[in-house]
Amino acid sequence: MSYWAHFRVWRGDSEKGELVDYPAEVNEGEVVLDIIHRLQQTEAQDLAVRWNCKAGKCGSCSMEINGRPRLACMTRMNTFAEDEVVTVTPLRTFPVIRDLVTDVSFNYTKAREIPSFAPPEGVEPGEYRMQQVDVERSQEFRKCIECYLCQNTCHVVRDHEENKEAFAGPRYLMRIAELDMHPLDSADRQTAAQDEHGLGYCNITKCCTEVCPEHIKITDNALIPLKERVVDRKYDPVVWLGNKLFRRGEPANKNR
């Protein structure tokens, strides 16, 4: 039940590159990553590709398949017609290193800009008490395998290189949401989400949610709730007035 598929794989580096056609044998049950590996073993031994677990758990083999950001290990070949050309390119938002491998350091830079978990004062290790219902929202976000497909597909940086400076991207805005909803985190994050990490750039067009291989509802459960929390702090006149009059300078009421 094997057949020959028509693959077009982008080969090149930051200097130059092109789509190269390869005929590739496809067997039943295979995924795109299998075909890439077969090309490595046969016609393109030095074809660069990044991969690890091949089970959708590590988020390494992110690439664009027929123009859609996907994990190659989770894209089954039977989702394509046998006569369909399968075009595989590197992620288009990050600088390319070689072939299908991109330099994703943008994401590590952004990760470092998000203030880390701030442990509650005076609570010793072993004394943390949290209810399951209180940790569940943050747990959803911690399912993230950091494949960066959301970072790659988000038009804010994909189409506008100049926004990379100001915009943390869905993955790291979700990280802020995760920490802001953490029942024991003691830092104030809401104002900074808007002022320093570019939450306002998000126009909730949901492409991050569409591409998430972990099916995390990034927009509905992280970004919009975070926007609403920012409204609580920055754009709610009642709260603003209250802060001016009564609680001036007091840190955010994280204990609600």
Partner: peptide, 19 residues
Amino acid sequence: STTDASTGRAQISERTLRT
């Protein structure tokens, strides 16, 4: 920027390769 290789991105001139 998607089609702009001056930023070090892969040189692909199509606005999208979605089929």
